[in-house]
Computed example of a mutant assay.
Amino acid sequence: MIKGFRDFILRGNVLDLAVGLIMGVAFGAVVTSLVKDVLTPFIGNIFGKPDFSSISYNHIMIGNFLNAVITFLMVAASVYFFIVMPANALMARIKGPVPEVPPASKVCPQCLSDIPIRAQRCSHCTQLVA
């Protein structure tokens, strides 16, 4: 039962979905801050004071936007270093080393074209190949 749960959690799509959800929420905060603290006051300063909820004339809150961007970058770094990297290392340990695939072709010494590994004669130049 525990092995099945572990396999379920460590499947790529479950982990990718969790990371995507976390990054989406963090990026949503960046976009919200951009609109609320930078674009809306900027538009309010250009067109007078439209019905934006109590914005002052010259107070564009760039600091809030920068805080949101820095928070997003910290969340992204935390997700990568504390979720993605350990999960990738665990998956590599579980799967083990990837066996090397023997080559399927070799190079003809005469014309340097690729020929099948079991060929005894080159199909391009008809040279005998050992």
Rank of each mutant, 00 (worst) to 15 (best):
P116Y: 07
D51F: 11
S113D: 05
Q110N: 13
M74Y: 10
N67W: 14
A26G: 09
K3I: 12
G48K: 10
A26T: 02
G96S: 10
A119Y: 02
P41N: 04
V19L: 08
V75A: 05
A26M: 06
F52P: 00
C108D: 07
P116I: 09
V19W: 03
I70R: 06
L39M: 14
L21H: 02
V31C: 02
I46S: 08
S123M: 04
G20F: 06
I9E: 00
K49L: 11
G96D: 04
P86Q: 03
F47E: 08
I46P: 10
I117G: 02
I9M: 10
K95V: 10
R121A: 01
A119V: 00
N88F: 08
A68M: 11
D7E: 08
F82M: 05
A92S: 11
P86G: 04
I46K: 04
F72S: 15
H59S: 13
C108N: 11
A77I: 07
L128Q: 12
V30R: 01
G24D: 12
T126R: 11
N58C: 06
R11C: 14
P86V: 02
A119S: 03
F27L: 12
I94H: 00
N13M: 04
P97M: 03
A130C: 03
N67S: 15
V30K: 03
Y80W: 14
F65N: 15
S123Q: 01
V129P: 00
G20M: 03
F65M: 07
G63I: 13
M85D: 10
